[in-house]
């Protein structure tokens, strides 16, 4: 059986693929996969007859599949629909357009609060929401919000789709129950020890020669800090200041690379 269409959903979303297949009156199976998960949509003469995803089937499964923003798709023409007796439906282009519009509007709202699934939330400490009624799935997600797990990890741990998880988190955020947690940054009062300046001087001597220590002292002074009490949070700024004195671009980037490795490891 020859594949006629495959690719990635990040470049062509499911509603566009379905519209293409439906307007061409295609018959076959559209397979969708993301990591180890797999969904299927069956079409006959351009109409969607059946969909399967996770433990859902029929229209529910199709709606969830349409919320996927990434993953791979693969259309197998004329694939047979084996052993399907229930949850069959007949969906036309107009319904796909309507669903696509609803999902797209909902994603646009969610994205204002959750721009990527790397975002981490924590319980809102300074807000006291009034009476709140939570549904079971909202409680399940709230119980996983701990200032450490990101949205993707929460979805993974409770077995919800990214869309459902994001949608629920969006609601919890709007209710004032949770707030975004910053990725950990070094505390402003955390200081570097003397070993850092030895490594800095070694790296700078390689590109600037014996003037290295003078340049370092000068730049620390410009930042109004002291070598004995230099805050970690200002290290990148210091490296940037020092780099501005290295005129050779190759040497400058090589110095920056070396110092980035040092910063990451302290």
């Amino acid at each position: 059986m020859a594949n006629i269409l495959n690719g990635t959903l990040s470049q062509m979303n499911l509603s566009e693929i379905l519209k293409l297949l439906m307007s061409g009156n295609k018959t076959g199976k559209l397979e969708l996969s993301k990591e180890n998960k797999k969904g299927e949509i069956y079409l006959k003469d351009g109409a969607i007859l059946y969909a399967k995803w996770n433990n859902k089937s029929g229209a529910d499964a199709l709606y969830e599949l349409m919320t996927w923003m990434n993953g791979d798709f693969n259309f197998i023409p004329d694939a047979a629909m084996d052993n399907i007796a229930k949850d069959m439906f007949d969906m036309g282009l107009q319904n796909i357009d309507e669903w696509s519009k609803i999902i797209s509007e909902e994603w646009n709202n969610i994205r204002k609060i959750i721009p990527t699934t790397n975002v981490v939330f924590k319980i809102a400490a300074n807000k006291t929401p009034k009476d709140v009624n939570l549904r079971a799935e909202e409680w399940k997600i709230l119980a996983n919000i701990n200032g450490a797990k990101n949205v993707e990890e929460i979805a993974e741990s409770i077995g919800f789709s990214e869309f459902d998880t994001s949608r629920t988190i969006y609601r919890l955020y709007k209710e004032g129950l949770i707030e975004e947690s910053e990725k950990p940054r070094p505390p402003a009062n955390e200081l570097v020890n003397g070993n850092f300046f030895h490594l800095l001087e070694d790296a700078l001597v390689k590109v600037m020669g014996p003037m290295a220590s003078i340049i370092i002292e000068e730049k620390i002074g410009m930042l109004k800090h002291d070598k004995n009490a230099f805050p970690k949070i200002r290290l990148a700024k210091l490296i940037e200041y020092i780099s501005s004195d290295i005129s050779d671009e190759t040497k400058r980037i090589s110095f920056q690379q070396a110092m980035l490795n040092v910063i990451k490891n302290i």
């Binding site: 990635t8 990040s10 470049q11 062509m12 979303n13 566009e16 996927w68 923003m69 990434n70 797209s104 994603w107 969610i110 994205r111 959750i114 721009p115 990527t116 699934t117 790397n118 975002v119 990214e162 869309f163 994001s166 910053e182 990725k183 950990p184 940054r185």
Partner: peptide, 29 residues
């Protein structure tokens, strides 16, 4: 810390590489 996502784009405006975050929708890309 503070970076939400990064994308490589060629000079024709086509996306060369991204994290394929679910929030980077087709319209945003």
């Amino acid at each position: 810390a503070g970076v939400m996502d990064s994308v490589l784009v060629n000079k024709n405006g086509s996306i060369v590489s991204s994290q394929q975050s679910p929030f980077l929708t087709q319209s945003l890309l």
